[in-house]
């Protein structure tokens, strides 16, 4: 009998049969892991399997290759705190959907677990949008698509204002000038001499990370970038208008 215990973040739950659900959890030590959760539709458990809930989870299976089953216990609820805030709710869904769609199963990503958990904690602060962007950059790096935003890819020494869509590296103003139509804009708060971001910069950063998510991380995925990520960006753009 295979069995372990861990803490995790609920990424998604797909109803299965009349009473259960296949629940996907980003665990601290065991990565993204699936399992069957019996009684998922009961009054007691319905709130437990909402996206973002932090849980104590116990996974059990007869052999390690099986789907296995979960025993879950709530540690902290996140979604219910954000129900009235469309932007934060969309950000939560976006982050969970990205992890659910892109992370391979049963491969440890404890850094990403801690990053996601820290990002949830930042929902109370005024700079939660910036923390979301930094989490997406860390997410790209974890998947092997890290961006180099601290020095010019072309050897320039001036201010870094572009990002090359080809290499994902920052480019200085003078070196990037001939290709400026093809370059992505590097938001000011991501430049080495950081400033506090405003909403416009956050939207620029969302556009930049979306490019790399779409063309790098999700390039080979049949479903492409998750709809929740697109909705978050659209909602943010509308919020600025």
């Amino acid at each position: 009998m295979e069995e372990w215990q861990d803490t995790g973040i609920i990424l998604s739950a797909r109803m299965h049969g009349e009473n259960g659900a296949i629940v996907s959890i980003l665990t601290k030590e065991h990565g993204r892991h699936l399992g069957y959760f019996n009684g998922a539709r009961s009054k007691k458990n319905r709130a437990l399997i909402e996206q973002g809930t932090i849980v104590n989870c116990q996974w059990k299976a007869r052999i390690s290759d099986s789907l296995g089953s979960w025993k879950l216990e709530e540690i902290k609820t996140i979604a219910s705190l954000l129900m009235d805030n469309p932007l934060k709710l969309a950000a939560l869904q976006s982050a969970c959907s990205l992890c659910d769609a892109a992370l391979p199963e049963r491969e440890g990503h404890s850094g990403l677990y801690h990053g996601l958990s820290a990002m949830f904690d930042m929902f109370d602060s005024e700079i939660w949008q910036a923390s979301y962007i930094f989490w997406e950059l860390a997410f790209l790096k974890e998947l092997g698509f890290g961006l180099e935003l601290t020095k010019c890819a072309a050897g320039g020494t001036g201010k870094l204002i572009y990002v090359s869509p080809k290499s994902g590296r920052a480019v200085s103003k003078e070196k990037g000038k001939p290709y400026k139509d093809k370059m992505l804009k590097l938001p000011e708060f991501l430049q080495p001499d950081k400033t506090a971001p405003d909403d416009k910069q956050i939207l620029e950063a969302l556009e930049m990370t979306r490019y790399f998510l779409e063309n790098w991380a999700f390039a080979q995925h049949s479903h492409g970038i998750p709809e929740a990520r697109l909705i978050f960006q659209q909602r943010f753009a509308k919020h600025i208008d």
Partner: peptide
């Protein structure tokens, strides 16, 4: 419904 999906649908319709 008072779920993440239910409320995000509500926000979408509000928009």
């Amino acid at each position: 419904s008072a779920t993440v999906d239910g409320q995000s649908t509500a926000h979408y319709i509000t928009d």
